[in-house]
Structure formats: structure tokens, C-alpha cells
């Protein structure tokens, strides 16, 4: 009997999967009151929040599922969740 190798997938290929369609609410990063604590980036389960520069964070809407953890945990309430209109 011939034993084949298991199914192999290339690293990080899930990026092709745009999960933005799951979103009902959309986080808006106002970048006004930001103190640069980075909690939004640390707590994002998708890993789609990035730091542009000091005290300026942004979210990649391609992958954001709109869970709202960033808005809830933001230490300066600088992130707002708004209803996504499609």
C-alpha cells in the first residue's frame, strides 16, 4: 500500500480569505484621543490592527470581522463602532 503525505498547505495562505463580509459593525479609528497604549492591536483576534506611527493605529478592513473588542478595550474611547452599510 502506498502511503501518501498528508494534506499540505502553504504558510499564511489564509490571507486570501477576506473575512470582511462577516461584519455588521465597523470600527472607526478616530486617531484623536489615542494615547498609544496599543491595546487595540494586542487584543485584535484577527491581528488586523496595525500601528501607522506613534499614537496612530489603523485597521485593515479586508479582514476585520467587526467584533468590537478594540472599541470596548480602547483606553481613551477613541474607537467607535458604526453600523456597516453595504
Amino acid at each position: 500500500m502506498r502511503l501518501d503525505l498528508g494534506a499540505i498547505a502553504k504558510a499564511g495562505t489564509s490571507k486570501a480569505n477576506q473575512t470582511c463580509g462577516w461584519r455588521n459593525f465597523k470600527p472607526i479609528f478616530h486617531q484623536e484621543k489615542c494615547v498609544g497604549c496599543g491595546l487595540c492591536k494586542i487584543y485584535c483576534p484577527e491581528g488586523c490592527v496595525t500601528m501607522v506611527e506613534k499614537k496612530k493605529y489603523t485597521v485593515d478592513y479586508t479582514y476585520c470581522k467587526g467584533c468590537g473588542i478594540c472599541a470596548e478595550e480602547c483606553s481613551s474611547s477613541d474607537i467607535e463602532m458604526v453600523v456597516e452599510e453595504k
Binding site: T13, T19, C37, G38, P45, G66
Partner: peptide, 22 residues
């Protein structure tokens, strides 16, 4: 906690995974 080191939140789990929201 602060994001003192950029490396501390380096993402080795790529986006686009199909975990539920939150």
C-alpha cells in the same frame, strides 16, 4: 500594559482565519 516592543504583538497567525467574531 503598553506595546513597548513591537515584537510583543508580532503576528505569526495570519489574518483571514475563519474563527468566529470575537
Amino acid at each position: 500594559l503598553t506595546a513597548s516592543k513591537e515584537q510583543s504583538c508580532q503576528t505569526l497567525l495570519a489574518s483571514g482565519h475563519t474563527a468566529c467574531t470575537g
